[in-house]
Design a protein around this nucleic acid. Structure first.
Length: 808
RNA sequence: GCCCAGGUGGUGGAAUGGCAUACACGUUGGACUUAAAAUCCAAUGGCCGCAAGGUCGUGUGGGUUCGACUCCCACCCUGGGCACCA
């Protein structure tokens, strides 16, 4: 063969590799293990675009590299196939989602095989396969057994378009994360998972993880732990006090009013006769406000006085009780103590309604003046106007002392509060795992016995969501009506299904033991493979999948099903690939580029190489169709160079370049700097292109390139007469005697400016006198040194020699 | 408003205290060709200069240092996340 024609070599080798199953991971091996995992895709009908492949190619390069390095690598792939789009498509077309899902999976699998992602396909899993979701249901039963799943009909986020409830994590800016519809509050019966019970562990265990800081930060913020105090304010002539939660108890002497959220339980009981009308109007108005209006109002506060008062326990002061929607009902106690002297929001509210403003934090201990403007509202300073606490520094000192005092007087107690809410887990839709529970009028909620799992999703004609808060399953009496597993009497099945996150919460465990019918996964295999060493995927899952999966994993750890506390030891987040126009690739914008078309034009190796070369892995980068040509040209040059006759003599500069390349590519792959790894390979080819490589140099170069471009390297490997397969070789050893150049260039600086470059023999570089003499004699530098006195000479061996002149 | 990441040629980017702009795209010129494509070679930050060379230059302004894209302080801009959370 004389010319590089990808279409003539790629299918041939793909077929051979598949026949020989060269990427199979062994469950028992003397080799050290690496579990390298991609976030598995949702098998959408549109297939995958080149953006999806940036992460897949990266994890594939890493997997191939570690195989060459002698690791037993587990690199699997599967399908997160339950979910709304398949169901919506089914409704539109009248095709059962299982049919379209199977079709989509086949298509995407073909795309992946087209670029030779080296997955162990024997471990392929599909979350909609009853043999898989049997275990998703099993895990749910364990959650139920442990009291971590409970039923409630509290108001929840409801998407009127998708006609289902949503988790807090699925609401973005008050809109449904999936369809963008404005989310409403609706009160329906739901299954909820007690993720808040794990809040502290989810927070603490982040510390040991090798994850991007920004993702850890996002989880920390989402969990939102704060250490504060719950304080009781008694109400005269009333049996219940008002409880408030605050993280600033040191400001308690500055309380001049109390605010309740409109939905607070006590609201109705505290309204006095003369205020009745006004309050009612306010409540009505605030209910009507949509999220959008609330946003549009910016931070303009509004509220109404109830007519009642409570007592500040620390000084017996009468405090008016107000109602305002700037207090969020669902957080803390739904009531806030108003401290306009040290909180900007309270200040604005107090100003508007003419409430008293007392300064409790001053710049100095004598700063007792009333607060006049928003600028005087301080968060840090010295306590004033607070009796025995005056003069204490805040926050540090004062906060702890006042906390102790309040607790000792029994006016309040320390409390830890989280932003994280429990996870609304049921969906009123068809295409999800059935929740394996039976409602029995006699026994209550009874779990389906484990030996009856999987509880299969029934085939139905109509999948339309009902919108009533019931799932379409409720319309199938022969499925709903069943026998109570406990008493044998008539019972009704739970008709809600699980959210899409359920299947993805534990799939990484199933790859380890995909066909086990007895247990979730074998204990020995768990011990061998877990945790996932390297998890690669998009940052859009930072607080969704990545938090949910950690939660489930910890529950599985607690019941002894897994031996590790955390599932994903190392995480790297892949940057988005945008279309050429800088927008997201989407079918409706018509700017999608598929791997299929790139493979057709340039071959899979070019696609892979370009994905690696286009820029830093974590960056968001626009696809540039004109740049692809560059890596294609590079592969052609590789082809030409390797196909040339062997060189006979060993040129040391090529040896040095090659050894450096081997070293750099290895460290770059491990640091996910694929772009510079490819650039280094290009430099090597540019250096040697017009010369000849020895057989040994060819072999080493091909192995180094193999993780990036598996087809062309396999082909050339066989053309130079080497034994199949290049992917079963070992990563080249580095020859240290060829790592250093004979001559090193040293820059000459005069007053910080580079004036010349010296070439210094390797054995001279540590000799400062010689280098200094050479530098002074160099024509270019001497010009700037002439007639000046040198104050100081700094020499960094092998790098730079710097002359500092005395200023004259 | 708060938290995080980032700002370098026409473009994607490289360099994490020591030669700014590696590698690639694009552009321009040349070779080959009847011609085009492909390929190969050369040039390619701005300004001054025929050139040698000089000078400015990594968002802005200061600072530390013999030396700063890199470290420190303040600010501006872009992207992401959170947001009336007490």
């Amino acid at each position: 063969m004389t010319k590089y024609i990808p279409s003539q070599i790629e299918p041939k080798w793909q077929k051979k590799w598949e026949e020989d199953q060269i990427y199979t991971a062994s469950d028992s091996s003397d080799k050290p293990k690496k579990y390298i995992l991609d976030m598995f895709p949702y098998p959408s009908g549109d297939g995958l675009h080149v953006g999806h492949f940036k992460g897949y190619v990266a994890s594939d390069i890493i997997s191939r590299y570690f195989r060459l390095k002698g690791f037993n690598v587990l690199h699997p792939m599967g399908w997160d196939a339950f979910g709304l789009p398949a169901e919506n498509y089914a409704i539109k077309m009248g095709i059962h989602p299982s049919i379209t899902t199977a079709r989509n999976i086949a298509n995407i699998k073909k795309q992946m095989q087209l670029v030779s992602l080296s997955y162990d396909w024997k471990r392929e899993i599909d979350t909609t396969d009853p043999n898989y979701y049997k275990w998703t249901q099993w895990i749910f039963l364990k959650l139920f057994e442990k009291g971590l799943a409970y039923e409630d009909d509290a108001p929840i986020n409801w998407c009127p378009k998708d006609k289902t409830g949503l988790a807090n994590e699925e609401v973005i800016d008050g809109k449904c994360a999936r369809c963008g519809e404005q989310v409403e509050q609706k009160k329906i019966r739901q299954w909820i998972l007690r993720i808040t019970k794990y809040a502290d562990r989810l927070l603490e265990d982040l510390e040991g993880l090798n994850w991007p800081e920004f993702i850890k930060e996002m989880q920390i913020n989402w969990i939102g732990r704060s250490e504060g105090m719950e304080i009781q304010f008694p109400i005269s002539n009333f049996q219940f006090p008002i409880n408030v939660y605050t993280v600033f108890p040191e400001t308690i002497f500055g309380v001049t009013y109390m605010v309740l959220a409109p939905e607070h339980q006590l609201v109705k009981k505290l309204i006095t006769k003369d205020q009745e009308k006004e309050v009612e109007e306010y409540l009505k108005a605030s209910q009507k406000k949509t999220e959008l209006q609330r946003k549009a109002e910016e931070r303009e506060k509004s509220g109404v006085f109830t007519g009642s008062y409570c007592i500040n326990p620390v000084n017996g002061k009468k405090v008016p009780i107000w109602i305002s929607d700037y207090v969020v009902g669902g957080y803390g106690t739904g009531a806030v103590m108003g401290v306009p002297g040290s909180d900007h929001r309270d200040f604005a509210f107090a100003k508007k309604y003419g409430l008293e403003i007392i300064r409790v934090i001053g710049k100095t201990a004598s700063d007792f003046d009333k607060v006049l403007t928003d600028q005087d509202v301080l968060e840090e300073g010295v306590i004033v106007n607070s009796e025995q606490f005056n003069g204490l520094k805040t926050p540090q000192d004062a906060r702890e002392k006042i906390k102790d005092w309040l607790a000792q007087k029994k006016w309040g107690m320390r409390k830890i509060q989280y932003h994280l809410r429990d996870w609304i887990f049921s969906r009123q839709r068809y295409w999800g795992e059935p929740i394996p529970l039976v409602h029995c009028p006699k026994c209550g909620v009874v779990p389906v016995p484990e030996n009856e799992l999987p509880l299969k999703l029934p085939d139905v004609k109509k999948y339309e969501p009902t919108g009533t808060g019931e799932s379409p399953l409720a319309a199938i009496p022969e499925w709903v009506n069943t026998v109570c597993p406990k008493c044998g009497g008539p019972g009704k099945r739970e008709t809600n299904t699980m959210p899409q996150w359920a299947g993805s919460c534990w799939y990484y465990l199933r790859f380890i033991d995909p066909n086990n019918n007895q247990v979730l996964l074998d204990k020995e295999k768990d011990k061998y493979w877990m945790p996932v060493d390297w998890y690669i995927g998009g940052a859009e899952h930072a607080v969704l999948h990545l938090l949910y999966a950690r939660f489930w994993h910890k529950v599985l750890f607690d019941i002894g099903a897994v031996s590790t506390k955390e599932p994903f030891q190392k995480l790297t987040s892949v940057g988005l690939v945008l279309a050429e126009d800088g927008r997201k690739m989407s079918k409706s914008l018509g700017n999608v580029i598929t791997p299929d078309e790139i493979v057709k034009e340039y071959g899979a190796d070019t696609l892979r190489l370009y994905e690696a070369f286009m820029g830093p892995f974590e960056n968001t980068i626009s696809w540039d169709p004109t740049s692809i040509n560059g890596v294609y040209k590079f592969l052609n040059r590789v082809w030409e160079l390797i196909c040339k006759e062997e060189g006979k003599s060993v040129e040391s500069r090529f040896e040095i370049a090659l050894n450096k390349l081997v070293k750099k590519v290895a460290s770059d792959i491990e640091a996910m700097k694929f772009n510079t790894a490819v650039a280094a390979a290009m430099e090597f080819i540019n250096l040697t292109y017009h010369h000849r490589l020895t057989s040994d140099q060819k072999k080493k170069f091909l192995i180094v390139l193999a993780p990036f471009a598996p087809h062309i390297t396999e082909e050339l490997w066989s053309q130079i007469g080497e034994k199949y397969s290049i992917h079963k070789q070992s990563w080249p050893a580095i020859d240290n005697k060829f790592l250093e150049e004979d001559e090193v260039s040293v820059a000459v600086q005069v007053n910080g400016k580079v004036r010349d470059i010296l070439l210094i023999q390797k054995d001279m570089i540590s000799n400062k006198e010689v280098v200094e003499k050479m530098a002074k004699e160099s024509q270019k530098a001497a010009k700037f040194l002439e007639g000046k006195s040198v104050k100081k000479v700094v020499y960094v061996p092998g790098k730079i020699i710097s002359f500092v002149l005395s200023s004259s």
